[in-house]
Design a protein around this nucleic acid. Structure first.
Lengths: 151, 151
DNA sequence: GACCGATTGACAGTATGCTGTCGTTATGAC
DNA sequence: GTCATAACGACAGCATACTGTCAATCGGTC
């Protein structure tokens, strides 16, 4: 195995692990608010401005179908609602309800505590550089592995 | 939201995206060899030395149940086999068959090409530093969020 | 104004990972 | 040597994400 291959495999494997770790803590943070990590994430995506399901999917980098499922659950749960979209009859806009907003806000304190602890481990500076590294890696993957989205 | 919270959310969100990207490329690489990303990963874990399912799970940082499922599929597919474990009657050791080894080797060339392209984007040095950042982040999460595994 | 391609939501099927629970097997304390 | 505890595999059920397919809608072209 070449050195580059070791780096690629290491990065992928570590990312898989990291994904599990972040998912775990997100799930823990969200549970007391009656949310799951995925629902928190979708709700978070429309906190600032309502978006259609496909738009949320693009913002999150996952498929519309996955977001659709979560969005329907959120609406059914009363944490979000669909608004008519003036510019597209089918693509209704998703927006959190008051209850949904309250749920997200309830997560905030524990989220802040965890963020502070992590920053304590890495140093705010190191934390910031780690995030940069993640973003660069993601961009590089986008650059070399076009997801068949290039028309 | 505090600055630390922005960093934590950004890191989590970017990791989720990165996970999807690495999973996607791994799936693409593995498919021509008749493997999936998960099967490739499990097979890769026992290339050097046979391990019981629970051992693989620990090495990969996921649950034994998930590994068990994949391992059974690999055995059923003829790509791996269970060996009697001298030191534990139930915990049979998983080992790739000749066919399993061949499948993994078939992935190698495309893997090398992709690794080289990614290294071209990031620079080998930058790639290496990115991997370090991933590992530090993972360790920091381990340090502050014990997965209830501390007796 | 009619047509064509792209976007969107709906629905079905599949892969992966998780939790929870149970019986079996090793390991260590006594 | 016995017994409690931990580790392990087996099985069931759930959450998330993906692919594939189809009909409805929108936007631009002619």
């Amino acid at each position: 195995m070449t050195k580059e291959q070791e780096l690629l495999s290491g990065a992928a494997l570590t990312t898989f692990r990291l994904n599990g770790q972040f998912l775990g803590v997100a799930e823990e943070l969200a549970r007391p608010a009656g949310l799951t990590a995925a629902r928190w994430q979708v709700l978070g995506a429309v906190l600032a401005t309502p978006l259609p399901v496909a738009g949320i999917a693009r913002a999150m980098g996952i498929t519309r179908q996955s977001v659709q499922r979560i969005a329907d659950l959120l609406v059914h749960q009363g944490l979000a609602e669909y608004l008519p979209n003036p510019s597209h009859r089918r693509a209704k806009l998703l927006r959190p309800t008051a209850e949904g907003l309250a749920a997200v806000r309830r997560i905030d304190p524990a989220h802040a505590v965890l963020a502070r602890r992590l920053a304590g481990e890495l140093g705010t500076e190191g934390f910031s550089r780690a995030l940069d590294a993640l973003r660069r890696l993601s961009s590089a993957l986008d650059a070399i592995a076009p997801t068949a989205e290039a028309p």
